[in-house]
Nucleic acid binder design. Structure first.
Lengths: 210, 210
DNA sequence: CCTCAAACTTAATATCATTCAGTTCTTGGG
DNA sequence: CCCAAGAACTGAATGATATTAAGTTTGAGG
């Protein structure tokens, strides 16, 4: 048995990415053996080389898929929050955090990939990544039009906003002492503190003191 | 030639950690072969097993050493800034960021270790780690006594403060498009933005608008 | 001196990633 | 319908590493 028959053909590229993400989550580590992926897909390890140059390429594909999924979640919130930029900023932050806490290993692959992966540059280099960032900037711009962050450099505050949330989820993902609920509470508290600070710059409401 | 003579004895535990950190920086990746460490130390790979249970234990030791070094840098700033808590917060943040950007792979080992390492819990579980955190909280408490962050929950704001800086350095470390200077500027900008926000809560000075 | 434990070294094993050399379908021309 | 060429795999071979086993030399205590 060498080449499979038409009936039993399986979409290896798609399934491989899918199973890789599943195994990543299951093992909680990037060190998923190719053999395991192949077995989950239903083929042998060398077969994967017909679709991906090597293991790193497969992990890169999984990473791209991760950005796609994150974008979808953020975009859903965006559509739901039209007309409420401040609310979008908050709920968009929640959605981002929820994605990270629910897919910790995938999130780490996206934002702290081993240099070996050969990810050429920054997280936003991929198309989906760029789109996620643009959603954030759109939210900030709208918020500014509604009176928040007056005169602030959006690029600068955007990066700070993102840094804070990324930092919070990274630290919470890494903390094995906390259970899922505690990680979420801790992350949400950071997002809320951040939103309070932004709110304090806006149309005179919301005191900063927690 | 089996057991070395007294004269040529070498302090393997210390040297191994030292060389591991050097190779980590050189290769920019956790995947440093034990053989390479052994060669740098001047022994063979199995010899390391007499001092570390396995490779993970060696990496954990390197990680602990990293926390020790970070603490030393933060503590130096702390001593230098006695009496100026706001200044300590700022310069302590700079020192933290400088350490991270100058030792990117070690920093990643400290704060985004592969779960395989068996780091039992959170970054502050090690003694040195806990001490670093306590320096931050001390700085925040003093700042509050000087009128900043009135009524704020320090634990909460401390975590946010740390999240922001950790997030900024993590994202900048990861962005291969930026050179060292650009990473530093970007990180410093985030710290400054954060300090402006804290300053805005203090004794009526420093407007938040950049 | 002699014995034993300590501290290494060289082989041996196991796990993967990756490459090689077939083997079996499918397909496009005749 | 038949055949050649190539596509899509498979199983075996290679090579890099971590880890373990077995063997050797040195230092220390009696």
């Amino acid at each position: 048995m060498a080449r499979p028959r038409k009936e039993q053909e399986l979409d290896i590229p798609r399934r491989a990415v899918e199973e890789t993400i599943r195994l990543l989550a299951q093992q909680g580590d990037f060190g998923v053996p190719l053999t395991a992926v192949a077995q989950a897909v239903g083929c042998t390890a060398p077969a994967l080389y017909g679709h991906f140059r090597n293991k790193n390429a497969l992990l890169r594909a999984a990473r791209d898929e991760g950005f796609g999924r994150l974008y979808n979640e953020k975009f859903a919130v965006f559509e739901q929050m039209r007309g409420d930029p401040f609310g979008y900023l908050r709920d968009g932050g929640y959605a981002y955090a929820r994605f990270a806490l629910e897919n910790p290993t995938l999130y780490r692959l996206m934002f702290s990939p081993p240099p070996k992966l050969g990810v050429s540059d920054d997280p936003w280099s991929s198309e989906a990544g760029r789109q996620v960032l643009s959603l954030l900037l759109t939210g900030l711009r709208s918020s500014q039009e509604h009176g928040y962050l007056p005169g602030a450099d959006l690029q600068r505050y955007g990066f700070m906003f993102w840094s804070t949330i990324h930092g919070a989820v990274s630290l919470n993902i890494q903390n094995r002492l906390l259970d899922h609920a505690a990680k979420w509470d801790s992350t949400q508290s950071v997002i809320d503190a951040l939103m309070e600070m932004i709110a304090a710059t806006g149309p005179a409401k919301h005191p900063i003191t927690s």
